[in-house]
Design a binder for these strands. Structure first.
Lengths: 199, 199, 199, 199
DNA sequence: TCGTAAGCGAGACGGTACGTCGCGTCTTGTG
DNA sequence: CACAAGACGCGACGTACCGTCTCGCTTACGA
């Protein structure tokens, strides 16, 4: 999702990559993404706005989607960490509410959509996206495991299926947009998951 | 999703549209889609392979996604009609099983994905896709309504939420591909929906 | 030196090439050539100034030099035809005087130079240039032949060598620019050629 | 034509320039020039093949043509010195024969052509080339002057015009390549020059 | 039966963006 | 300080498709 060799060989020969250029590119991408949308976004335009050679961008990201991925990560700095209130049900409700709120911010929906779109077209980026998705699943998985250990959730539930039941409808509405992603829907999702899997 | 004025003015002036050209275009699209993937698909390439002028394609479909939509329809002839066995639960299980089976056919997944991708980029096509999605939802809605009337399902369920719980995870796995769309998952989905909403 | 298939199949399939675009390209080339010089001339710049797609230029000329060739031909409309005054010596003097005068016009020297430069780098264009050069030699060859027939020049001269003795120093001074191409030099060249080959 | 400050301050501060690098650059240039031609020659390519930083080349030569000039000098070690046999006519014949022979060596023609091409595009290099050309003219000028003093050539000839009559056709055939640069042509050139200017 | 209106293939058109190359300059660490 | 390595801003390259626009030619209806 990010520049390709983040923390590799600490010193390789030649001039090191400019962090200034790096930041300028990411900023320009966010700008264009939220202003004109994914369509208007091109390596050409990003280079122009960032005051950077196209090569400098290609050196770091190999596709538009990968670039947008970095910009998205930049946009959603707050990472919705595991709340861990001690109550698994409360944790789930909190996490979902935050997720559904963050998605209201302008540009976030567009970014997520463009990433899914890119993933359908570029298998390499699909892998990267899967990695990102998995990291989000892991947070919920942790909450569920904790809930089971604490006896707050029944022991025989299948976490992965449960997670699909939460994130599935979330992405579904996000992508198809046949219905809003509001806090009521967030609550409903948790309710149904708990009724299905909880004690 | 299809050629844009299917059953319009039954007879309009001038030379009628060539069904030969029409078929050649769809065939070429399916060919390219399953052979080289969505990436290699372009109006230019389709026209070349079909031996057809670009204009002739533009006259019928206004976007790549719309064109792929036609190809998809071509591929999935069977349209998963409402089973109506008399038992709502049996109907649901049957429908889901068919849905999950159809998606195994080569090219179908690719077509669905490309359509979702296109929808993220082209609002007009998003509307078309939403129409298609809605038609699929309507089938389930009918089953659910029938189940309630017959007393097979409890009366206070919200059909649309229930549908989200089924189709959500379906699309989620289809698009993210983090887990397979097998018949076991189909069964699990119906189980959870029923446990959540059924009596 | 010109667009590649001048008077071929009078009607080939598809939209015919636009003469408007053609002229716009040539004009833009002449403009840029005489204004900013050969260096500043690029397909990119010509396309921009002519309001034309780059492809449209590439379709007609395959290299910068070939393009400049067309522009040059456009610039030197007057083609220094065979004078044929009845007197071979007079003809030669007249032709040379005209040649040396035409080369004074701004841009002509630059165009000729750039063509020679391109010919050194691109064998294909070298062939084209050779064709142009040969056409100029033919004019002189005709004059000489006529002079021999009329008994104005002695019979045993070798026309091609004689022509080398005239055009050789001409191009030499044109390219190296170590001395001016003035009318005195023109006269001297004819004098020496005649002293060397005449009766 | 050569490295720009050959015999400058014999000892200047800092690390002295590596003669190893210098030679590697020239060798790589000759290699590329004779192998892939002038087109494939670029500072970038030379640096890569020589295993040298681009800067190191720029430090020594300021243009592609200047660099090729050095390579040319490397290729043509023998410099065709003034023969001075005592007989001006014999001297001229000898010099021309040598000149026409040297040009047969592979790569020499290409180098000369590329230098002329570069001179048409880069005024600075044109000056350098003019300097080189003048040095070659000076040799002939000396022979002619000596011939006049010795009474072997008539006193009223204009040396510079005479030289144009020899070198002009030489370069003409070299650059346009409409006819070969063989020894017969060498002889013919001297013959005609003498008939034109000699007693 | 014949005009006329649209469809047809081909392919050129003005564009935008692509991904690459080379330029000449700059910044690293190493000698 | 020179050197190799290589990143940098830049500008041009030649190509791919876009969606539109002629061409000359069917095709088929309705006047």
């Amino acid at each position: 999702m990010d520049a390709d060799e983040e923390a590799q060989t600490p010193a390789r020969p030649g001039r090191p990559r400019s962090t200034v250029a790096h930041q300028a590119i990411v900023d320009a991408t966010v700008d264009l993404l939220t202003t004109d949308g994914y369509q208007a976004l091109s390596f050409e335009a990003v280079a122009a706005r960032a005051g950077v050679g196209k090569r400098t961008i290609y050196r770091r990201w190999k596709s538009k989607g990968a670039l947008v991925g970095a910009a998205y990560t930049e946009m959603v700095q707050r990472r919705h960490p595991d709340p861990d209130t001690g109550d698994a049900v409360k944790d789930l409700r909190l996490l979902l509410r935050r997720l559904f709120t963050s998605v209201q911010a302008p540009g976030v929906t567009a970014a997520l959509r463009s990433m899914v779109a890119e993933a359908q077209l570029d298998p390499d980026f699909a892998t990267e996206l899967r990695r990102f998705v998995e990291s989000r699943r892991e947070v919920v998985r942790t909450i569920l495991r904790r809930g089971i250990e604490r006896g707050q959730l029944r022991a025989d539930l299948d976490p992965d299926t449960a997670i699909d039941l939460v994130f599935g409808p979330y992405w579904y509405r996000l992508l198809i947009a046949h219905a809003p992603l509001d806090s009521r829907f967030a609550a409903t999702l948790v309710d149904h998951m708990l009724r299905g899997i909880g004690q």
